[in-house]
Design a protein around this nucleic acid. Sequence first.
DNA 1: CCTCAAGTTTGTTGAAGCGCAAACAACCTA
DNA 2: TAGGTTGTTTGCGCTTCAACAAACTTGAGG
Lengths: 244, 244
Amino acid sequence: MGSSKTLPRLDESLLSYLPQFMRLSRQDIRDILDQAVSRRFDADTVIFEEGAPAERFYLLLDGYVRVLRITKEGKRVILLHIQSGQLIGIARAIGRTEYPATAMTASECLALSWPMSLFDVFAEKYDGFINETQKAVGRRMNEMNTRIVELSSQHVDRRVANALLRLIDQSGREVGDGVEIDFPITRKDLSELSATTLHTVSRLMTAWERDGIVKSSRQRIVVRNPRKLAELGHVDKTKQPPIR
Amino acid sequence: MGSSKTLPRLDESLLSYLPQFMRLSRQDIRDILDQAVSRRFDADTVIFEEGAPAERFYLLLDGYVRVLRITKEGKRVILLHIQSGQLIGIARAIGRTEYPATAMTASECLALSWPMSLFDVFAEKYDGFINETQKAVGRRMNEMNTRIVELSSQHVDRRVANALLRLIDQSGREVGDGVEIDFPITRKDLSELSATTLHTVSRLMTAWERDGIVKSSRQRIVVRNPRKLAELGHVDKTKQPPIR
DNA sequence: CCTCAAGTTTGTTGAAGCGCAAACAACCTA
DNA sequence: TAGGTTGTTTGCGCTTCAACAAACTTGAGG
């Protein structure tokens, strides 16, 4: 289970490089930190649940978080991945009083949180906060749009390829022979991201491993040849119907 | 082509019942209207295009608008339907300087528009404007999430059923023997909403027509038995796996 | 009234990919 | 080190649906 504490005193450098807080004075950042609760979460732990009253909002300091929904049939659908430095649970920014989806850690995580009532205070008081937050909302919306387009128009292999590309783009870590996804990820997770089954993902991965595009072991994926993967993901049908 | 004019003087009642403007004084509304450009659009006309600089934002007074993207292969994917009373092109509200998608009229439309620079002015000056706008963003985000979940987890027939249900919910008009979708809609449109082909939609429609669930003619769809359609759309598998 | 374009229906075919099942491999902990 | 748990691979059958094709319907415009 995660542990919750406010001590020792949080260092100001935690926030001072994040776009939301960049323009603030040392004192403002100090105030913000002094009101925060810091907490560690184990991997695969629910931070907040869809439909629950949105009581707090979080800043992910370290680790990765998945935003997901669970269908009536109990099937998980991953909507987004969030990396450190990002705010989550900002229901207030989109005029909601309940969390619209579930947030679950993908790896061990460290997060600060504040009561939602402070969101309005921050928005009012701190220059750039609301603006950067809106930008973040915009980016996520854009990612969702892209997902919808992908799901609607592309075949499984492309969807999986694109999901992988997005993951290494957002949370890739350079390793000796390629770029590794920086948190444990299973075939099942990938299938929940790309709307297919773990079986199909597994088949694709072995095929790509044979071609030297990826290398994977249990819960670890290294993309050795992002270029080639991108070719699979992007569409380069020579015939491009005019947009009439 | 659409015509553009500022005369005759717009009536205040156009705005005074909309949530964004509800709390405002007569004078404020007058000011807002005096800065607006009013314009009529024919059906199937582009209002603004994805990627273009977001120079104006719009308030749809009458008609229906589709928000869509076009894939590299030239395939259209409809992201949302917008009904009258809603703002569109509010890129600014999500921190963007370009329109993230294309807006196209689904029927003849009437819209007011303002230069984007006024967005910040409205947000600052008029109580409730930014709040209601954020709520609208939240609703659209929610709809997108639902789309993603649907596309990821449901079969074609359910997706089409749900798309229809959403359409009659958002823009249904009571007619003698059911609820009609209030704007011209083709099988192709429906297929672009539910990620399938017009052929499959056609087959489903004829099957449902045989069952008395819908009635359709060219570009017109009447849902006679929403209840039954909802049964098709909702999932009522008795076995509900635990959410472990 | 005729023509044409746009939308719709219907049939046929093939393959993608899902469900199911079983075996296997890696890791965890007792 | 044994035993259990969790993740992964692989094969096979079968359903679903997209692709292709072609005829038909409807409505608009001359």
